Simulated scan of single mutants.
Amino acid sequence: MSPCGAANGRGWRNSLRSNFEMVPESLTLTTVLSLAWLLWLVMVGVGLILERRPPAATLAWLLALLFLPYIGAVIYFLFGPRRLRRRRLRYSRARNRLVQSAHDHLRQDHALPPGFPAADFEQQLATLMEHSGQGVPVAARDIRLLETGDGCFEAIEADIGAATHHVHLEYYIWQPDGIGTRLRDLLIEKARAGVQVRLLLDAIGSNSVKRSFLRPLEEAGGSTAWFNPIRLPRLGPNHINFRTHRKVVVIDGRIGFIGGINISDSHSSFSGSQDAWRDTHLRIDGEPVHRLQFIFLEDWYFATEKTPLEPAFFPEFTEPPTRRWLQVVESGPDTNRYAIAKFFFAAIAGARRQLLLTTPYFVPNEALMMALVTAASRGVEVRILVPKQSDEPTRPY
């Protein structure tokens, strides 16, 4: 290279270096961060659209990320749908493991059983749920509606007191108050008598329960577990809102309880006050309890990675079937089948004469609201009962 060319090369490099030095470092960093943020926003937006979520939910996420860039990102990180896929995968593995283990103990036929009501509407709803992975309806020996917390607690305590093999409980809210302590002490008594006791609590709903409260039960031989506990070193997306809101009790595989009543003085007019929460529960006696048992064991395996399975968990019922048909339907963030939502929509859309609905939280999505409005417009008597005062703010309709 000639001296002139070398000089020109050095001059070009010196000029380029001086031009970069003229650009403020903060401006360069801001530009890079802005471009990275824009790219991330586009990727998240495309992902949300491809997930085919409800339009309102997709729009809400996009607006939050656009106009609340930092807060929106944190909320998306904690509550967004991405990590939920991994939780669903782990949950599906728990289900598959349990299905393989319990295959010989569960009803495997997919056709509606003989004696089920011949009405087309009932058969259509039952078939819809079976196609949504919920199993077919089965006949119960007895079904009792429990309309008060005190009546519910009395029935649960009586059946636990008569248990001979196992007691399985899963609750969203368990308070260490009068009711919670009384029921815990009964479980301690049964565990000492040799009955298998397993208690699964949600880590958020039952955060008032401390290890010291559960220790006497564990020392008596009972087993306890937390559903999806929150640990700071593992804090990540969807650890917070991946919860179990179930209130399930299974006793000897024959008696089951399910409904909306948690373990708390708030549900008792005796232990709490006359302003006790009003909710509804079911006591089930018979083969439908097998489905509740499966759901509990599935959640227990998810929480502990252990599958306790014995023939006594799914006892045979030799009594002739009754006309009390029951189909247990489950749903939650671990599945995208939305079985309960599908059932509500189909039932509301197919109503002919009367539609009675009671719920503590009336927050229907657009499809369910349209089904209700359409049913009323068709001349169906539609009545909706909601609390005058709720523990959560709801939108007026």
Rank of each mutant, 00 (worst) to 15 (best):
Y172S: 12
Q123F: 03
Q124E: 15
D150V: 04
G151Y: 09
Q134A: 01
R184T: 08
G149A: 00
A203H: 11
G178R: 07
G149I: 02
W174C: 09
V136I: 13
A191S: 04
H168R: 11
H165M: 15
L146K: 09
S206I: 08
T164H: 02
R144F: 13
R144Y: 15
E157K: 14
S132K: 14
G178D: 07
R192F: 11
G205F: 00
D202P: 08
A203M: 06
D185K: 06
T181I: 10
G205W: 02
A139E: 00
V136S: 12
G149Q: 00
L128M: 02
F121P: 11
T181V: 13
D202L: 00
H165P: 15
P176N: 08
L186W: 08
D150K: 07
R144S: 15
L146F: 07
G149M: 04
L186F: 03
A119M: 06
L200I: 01
A191Y: 04
A139K: 00
L199T: 13
T164D: 02
G151L: 08
F153A: 03
V197G: 02
I156K: 06
W174T: 09
A140K: 01
A191T: 01
R182Q: 15
G178F: 03
F153Q: 05
L200D: 02
E189Q: 09
P137F: 10
L187S: 14
F153N: 05
I143Y: 14
M129V: 09
H165S: 15
D120R: 05
A140P: 04
D120I: 05
F153D: 00
E122Y: 14
T164I: 07
W174G: 07
Q134N: 08
D120H: 04
R184V: 05
E170I: 06
A162I: 14
T164A: 00
P176L: 05
H166S: 13
A191K: 03
L186H: 10
A140L: 01
T181C: 14
D150P: 01
G151S: 09
D120N: 02
K190N: 06
D202K: 05
V195C: 08
W174L: 12
S132M: 04
Q175C: 08
